[in-house]
């Protein structure tokens, strides 16, 4: 959710039950501007909030020239002082997925331990992960699996740069009600497996991402019209707390995650 549009776009996603209070909003407007200047970002997004047991993490995301590659995530407790999250590596993801369990605490130096020394023939006997790296991994995973843009909002130039499509005028009302017009804003995984017939209909500048309608299991997104059916709201059922909005016929769109930072692994039972 773009930081400059934060004040009114939070209203669109308030139906999920989470919003920011006046104090936090004003603090963010000040601090994100400073952040943009200090880190030389092209634009700054307010990414969301991860609810911990003691404290909540506020997450901001800075974007550079390439909207997809040049991303940096930062976290804060008071919406004023921001700390950079470490870059995510594969080994870090593996450690976090084995050791980190349960809810976030709200203390970046908290250490999750998994002691496997009792069990035989295990090589990694003791896995230690601090909460900061867990936070980095969680933010990365949510971005990978649940970040949403309407089709056409971003274009890929022939050089491979992904940038905002300045001529994007928004989906029409009927288009906004269909899941195939929304794309994952992450490296495409299923696009290459499509058949040539299907690829023929795609526009290489716009359709370089995966569609939400191809997600497995089917029905892992809830699409609704809210605010007197003026706003199209998409909620991820896999990452409960991720809400994305798009106002049809306008270029306004965005997503925010306010939740516990835990993937909903029970989804197959719940549909």
């Amino acid at each position: 959710m773009d930081s400059s549009a934060l004040s009114y776009s939070l209203e669109f996603v308030a139906g999920s039950g989470h919003t920011l209070n006046v104090e936090q909003k004003t603090a963010l407007q000040t601090s994100l501007l400073i952040l943009k200047k200090n880190y030389k970002f092209n634009r700054v997004l307010f990414w969301g909030k991860i609810l911990g047991l003691k404290e909540d993490y506020f997450i901001a995301q800075g974007r550079g020239e390439d909207e997809m590659q040049d991303k940096k995530n930062l976290y804060s407790f008071n919406c004023m002082d921001w700390f950079l999250l470490p870059p995510v590596t594969d080994s870090m993801m593996e450690e976090v997925s084995t050791a980190a369990k349960g809810r976030f605490i709200g203390d970046p130096s908290h250490v999750y331990e998994l002691d496997r020394r009792g069990e035989a023939d295990e090589e990694d006997v003791l896995t230690k992960v601090n909460e900061e790296s867990r936070l980095a991994v969680t933010v990365h995973q949510i971005d990978e699996e649940a970040s949403v843009i309407p089709r056409g909002a971003f274009v890929r130039s022939p050089h491979g740069l992904v940038q905002i499509n300045r001529s994007f005028g928004g989906l029409s009302h009927s288009e906004a009600g269909k899941l195939d017009n929304y794309l994952h804003f992450s490296e495409p995984k299923r696009l290459k497996t499509k058949s040539i017939l299907e690829m023929g209909d795609l526009n290489p500048a716009i359709d370089f991402l995966d569609e939400l309608s191809d997600d497995i299991p089917k029905g892992s997104w809830s699409l609704q019209f809210e605010c007197a059916s003026n706003v199209c709201v998409l909620r991820s059922l896999l990452w409960l707390g991720l809400t994305s909005y798009h106002v049809p016929m306008t270029p306004q769109h965005g997503y925010i995650y306010i939740g516990h930072g835990i993937k909903n692994l029970d989804l197959p039972f719940m549909l």
């Binding site: 139906g15 999920s16 039950g17 809830s222 609704q224 909620r235 059922l237």
Partner: peptide
Amino acid sequence: LILGTQSS
């Protein structure tokens, strides 16, 4: 407010 998959 209870959120549902199709409407709330």
